[in-house]
């Protein structure tokens, strides 16, 4: 679900990372403050389209992002439909979708290193509270780049389970998966240490 930087050109690429982050944050915030109505959902969709329909990005990419977020959207929508009327539910799901796709716009047009630098700078004031911005930013990025590995490990364990004639039992999945994840964490810790992280 986490999209990665895709090199390109266009207004979103040229905007300095700090401003871009702030701008998208404001838009997402504004969208969240709209009342939960049909027309608000329409406005949110229009905002997404407007943000993506610029040179260098395109509506096809919006489709891809929305598709990648489909399960979150479905779960949100289904959950809300149980308790709320359709108008509320759709508007809330639209909020979530907008937030995800606009966040995707940021990661899509900004190299991770620059995003990290920005996070680091934004957290600088917290340094006085004893927080280490560099460490925090690093943790964030390692977490992001580890997600694909965790997904692949899950697939490996599942396939090994099926290959040995096991069914889809959670119990037989959880143990080996946990062991593999811990082993990976251990190895990753070593790799970080030897590359100068303390």
């Amino acid at each position: 679900m986490v999209t990665l930087y895709r090199p390109g050109d266009g207004p979103w690429y040229r905007l300095p990372t700090g401003w871009k982050t702030a701008l998208l944050l404001v838009v997402v915030l504004a969208v969240c403050l709209l009342p939960p109505t049909w027309w608000a959902a329409g406005v949110m969709a229009a905002v997404c389209v407007a943000c993506y329909a610029v040179p260098g990005i395109g509506l096809r990419e919006l489709g891809r992002q929305a598709w990648a977020a489909r399960w979150i959207v479905v779960v949100t929508l289904a959950g809300q439909l149980i308790f709320l009327d359709p108008e509320h539910a759709v508007a809330n799901a639209a909020r979530v979708t907008t937030a995800i796709t606009l966040a995707g716009l940021l990661t899509l047009t900004t190299p991770a290193t620059e995003l990290l630098d920005t996070v680091e700078r934004a957290m600088q004031p917290l340094a006085r509270l004893g927080l280490d911005p560099q460490r925090a930013a690093l943790t964030l990025s390692v977490t992001l780049s580890t997600l694909p590995v965790l997904a692949r490990l899950a697939r490996d364990v599942r396939e090994a389970q099926l290959a040995r004639g096991g069914g889809r039992s959670l119990r037989h999945f959880a143990m080996p998966y946990l062991v593999m994840v811990l082993k990976h964490a251990d190895e990753l810790g070593d790799a970080l240490a030897v590359r100068g992280v303390r």
Binding site: Y5, P111, A112, H184
Partner: peptide, 17 residues
């Protein structure tokens, strides 16, 4: 230091990074 498991040595999302 270089280890054998290529996966566990990569820490950033893109190659150059």
């Amino acid at each position: 230091v270089v280890f054998s498991n290529p996966d566990a040595q990569i820490v950033m999302p893109t190659v150059a990074e």
